[in-house]
Design a protein around this nucleic acid. Structure first.
Lengths: 226, 226
DNA sequence: TGATTTTTGTGATTTATATCACATTTTTAG
DNA sequence: CTAAAAATGTGATATAAATCACAAAAATCA
């Protein structure tokens, strides 16, 4: 499952597109690709990390153990880098990454990664931009989480699936009600009840894991107002 | 209030210590220093930003408008960079920075900053590390905010003042009860009540804005358990 | 110094949502 | 195909904390 051909990879990140051929060869030498099935852990909170992960395809959840329960901090869709803050920092994963859909990921040795940051400012700049985007998104997400009530948070996440992940107003949820509750930061029972409410209001249609959004506008209002 | 002498500045950031003399001169040319009194805004959410801010001394709050109220995302103590994610990204501030104590800040032109990132990998690396630290801290903060109840969150913040900001178990709060509520994400009334509770339990002593922590251990337990 | 504004404290009431308990449905495994 | 396990739905109850209302204290100002 090793892959020494980053130069011919069709799923290069925006950052990697800035690399020279010699740099791509360097990357290829210390880059291993792996496939993860839904539910499989890519890396685990508390474990040591010496790799940066480039998620080529798929969808993962980033989970973090809170004082009372596990929380899904966010979903990350490919293409994206995972574990940069951890691996550049104190090397101990501060959160876990678990595949939610079948995913393909490249493990890049941290020393190679650092070398590339050093020799190629354009590469480095792109990585930095991704970190910046993450920080701002995280602030937004946190404020909504704290200030909106559950109804609004659920609406927000249903919209994220529709607009950011599946680009369709109809999709199959890749999570069960328990995971959905962890994502929305509430209880499984409340998710059930509120999905029923949204159905009753004819804002969505639910059939097991299949969701169809009937009234995007009203869902957006709920998402914003709380 | 201009300052062209970054080379002789005694409050250089860890990142800036990596700069060569010529690079320091470049920095000095596009760097302006300013003093902010408590309550004064350093930059404002929604406004355009073309500067990176290096907080030399002082303490600021980063606030963000939520769907229902203003939230204090975090306090930032000098030395620290502010506005990197914003200014590197879409240029519109996603949050405001307001001085909480008398603060001194250097405004660095974004183009100069980018130039330095490009020519000096060690500088760039330090900035990247700060972004990484921010991201991890932010995850932690968010989880606690969502999962702990108010009592625990208040305890956490009282400990942050003691351990991270003032390095003393006795200090004057730089915020009024309203701001403290915004920081803890609750209402002013609840802050009052819970401070009274902590006093009654002889865990802290409160005298207006003056706080003395009597039982750090118990406060820590409350901070962790909820 | 006294008057006005701001900040803070505290009781009463309301409410969103967690928790508990159990029934029903769906999925998995033998 | 049947049995066991897991996931889901729904009612009843409990509770943390918001909100409202107002009094008291502190800070600011003229």
């Amino acid at each position: 499952m090793s892959n020494n051909f980053c130069s011919v990879c069709l799923l290069k990140s925006k950052a990697v597109k800035n690399l020279q051929n010699s740099e791509l060869d360097l990357l290829g030498e210390s880059c291993v690709q792996a496939i993860f099935e839904p539910g499989e852990t890519i890396f685990k909170q508390g474990a040591l990390s010496s790799n940066i992960i480039y998620l080529q395809t798929g969808l993962v959840k980033l989970t973090i153990k809170g004082p009372h329960r596990v929380q899904i901090m966010r979903l990350k869709k490919a293409p994206s880098y995972l574990g940069v803050p951890t691996t550049m920092g104190d090397k101990i994963n501060h959160y876990s990454a678990v595949a939610v859909e079948r995913s393909s990921a490249c493990f890049i040795d941290i020393n190679t990664f650092k070398e590339l940051l050093k020799v190629n400012p354009a590469f480095s700049y792109e990585i930095m931009l991704e970190l910046c985007r993450n920080e701002l998104e995280q602030y937004q997400r946190c404020v909504k989480l704290v200030q909106n009530q559950v109804y609004g948070r659920l609406a927000t996440n249903l919209l994220i699936f529709s607009e950011e992940i599946y680009n369709s107003n109809e999709y199959d949820l890749p999570l069960n009600r328990n995971d959905l509750a962890d994502l929305v930061c509430t209880s499984r029972e409340t998710v059930s009840r509120l999905l029923a409410d949204l159905t009753q209001e004819e804002i969505i249609e639910v059939n097991g894991k299949h969701i169809r959004i009937l009234d995007t506008e009203r869902l957006q209002t709920i998402s914003e107002k709380g």
